[in-house]
Structure formats: structure tokens, C-alpha cells
Amino acid sequence: MFNVMVDAKAQSTKLCSMEMGQEHQYHSKIDELIEETVKEMITLLVAKFVTILEGVLAKLSRYDEGTLFSSFLSFTKPGMDVADAYVTFVRHSQDVLRDKVNEEMYIERLFDQWYNSSMNVICTWLTDRMDLQLHIYQLKTLIRMVKKTYRDFRLQGVLDSTLNSKTYETIRNRLTVEEATASVSEGGGLQGISMKDSDEEDEEDD
């Protein structure tokens, strides 16, 4: 559908002849229609991606401190399957979009909005738990998801000014504090998962 919009914009330039350097009025209207359609498409796509993220966070909510369910889950030692599945989903979706959409400008706008929306959702989820200490599983899962999301979108060309938003910094600071607390209270720590950058993680991402 994005490529249809790209082609429509190109064809409108040919169909709408120029007179004395001025565009015909209907040429401008076509451009406006295409722009509004692209905006709506990006919004709908991002909404679908965010729904997947909200589903992951809903699973993590079961581990909230003080809930009856969390007391049972504390006896289990879940792995990183949920985080890894989400990261794989994001990467696969990015690859598909790169392969299918021909217009780089649309890809950039989509990835910017996707990244910002994802960070907003995670930040809101953490804010709702401002007075709660994160369960070790919640913390490990979020650290992996946030770090991989940041790196993957950076690799896709999202600018540092977008990546290092106030929302991201809020998330990063909260997870860093939670990590420090967990390192004291949890005997086993986070098994190498950390908000700090490391060469090992860079090699793992390659």
C-alpha cells in the first residue's frame, strides 16, 4: 500500500502539468490526500505493533509485587522466551518493511513513530508501578527488550535525537535503579543481563 502511494505521487506529477511555475490546485489536493493516507497507514501499523507490546507487558503484569499470582510464580524460574520472541518479532517486521516498502522517507517516519510509541507504552507501564519494586523476571525481560529495541532501531537509521528521548531516559534510569536494587537483594543477580553496554552483547546481536 505504501508503494501505491509512492506511485500515485509520481504519477500525479506527470498528470498535473505546470503552468508558469505554479501547480494546479488539484495537484496540491492530490498531494494532501496522499499525505493524509500515508499518515493513517503509519498510525494503523504502529497501533498493531504496540498491541503486541501491550500483550507482552500484560504477561509481565502477572508478576506485580503483592499479587497472589506473583507469589506462586516466584517459585518458578522463567527464561527469556517472552523477551526473545518479542525482539524476534520486531526484527522480522523491520526486515519485511525494508524489503517491501520502496520509499525511504515513509520507512523513516514509520520507524520513528513505532519507536516513540513503544517507549511511551513501556514508560507508562513502569509509571503505573512507581511504588512497586519490579519482580526479577519483569526487570530482566524489560532490560532485554528495551536494549534490543534501542539497538535495532538505531541500526535501522533512527536518529540519536529520537532514540535518546526523555521517555527513553526515564525508562533507562528506572531500570538502572531497579537493577542496582536487585543486585543487592537477589543472590544470583541478573545472570549477566544489565542496562550497561557490553562487548558480549554487541557480539550476541551480530
Rank of each mutant, 00 (worst) to 15 (best):
T88F: 11
T88Q: 11
F89T: 06
F89I: 00
R91L: 05
H92Y: 07
H92P: 00
H92S: 07
H92A: 03
S93L: 01
Q94W: 02
D95Y: 02
V96A: 03
L97Q: 06
R98F: 03
R98G: 02
D99I: 00
N102E: 09
E103I: 00
M105Y: 06
M105T: 05
M105W: 00
M105A: 04
Y106A: 01
Y106D: 03
Y106R: 02
I107E: 05
I107P: 00
E108A: 04
E108F: 01
E108Y: 01
E108W: 02
R109M: 11
F111P: 02
F111G: 03
F111S: 02
D112S: 10
D112G: 07
Q113I: 02
W114P: 01
W114Y: 06
W114C: 02
Y115K: 09
N116P: 11
N116R: 14
N116G: 09
S117G: 09
S118L: 08
M119R: 04
M119S: 04
M119Q: 06
N120D: 15
N120H: 15
N120E: 15
V121A: 13
I122Y: 11
C123M: 14
C123R: 15
C123F: 15
T124M: 14
T124E: 15
T124F: 15
W125I: 02
L126S: 09
T127I: 11
D128A: 14
R129F: 12
D131K: 14
D131L: 15
L132M: 13
L132R: 14
L132V: 05
L132P: 08
Q133E: 14
Q133H: 13
L134Q: 02
L134G: 10
L134F: 10
H135P: 01
H135K: 05
H135Y: 04
H135A: 11
H135G: 03
H135L: 02
I136Q: 08
Y137C: 08
Y137I: 09
Y137E: 12
Q138D: 09
L139K: 08
L139H: 08
L139W: 08
L139V: 07
K140G: 10
T141G: 08
L142E: 12
L142F: 12
I143K: 07
I143D: 13
I143T: 10
R144W: 10
R144P: 05
M145T: 08
V146W: 12
V146P: 12
K147W: 09
T149I: 07
T149L: 11
D152V: 00
D152A: 03
D152E: 08
F153M: 09
F153I: 04
R154M: 08
L155G: 05
L155A: 11
L155F: 04
L155Y: 06
L155S: 11
L155T: 04
Q156W: 04
Q156D: 09
Q156E: 09
Q156I: 02
G157M: 04
G157Y: 03
G157V: 03
V158K: 01
V158P: 00
V158F: 01
L159P: 05
L159C: 07
L159S: 12
D160E: 13
D160F: 12
S161E: 05
T162I: 05
L163C: 07
L163T: 03
L163Y: 10
N164R: 13
N164V: 04
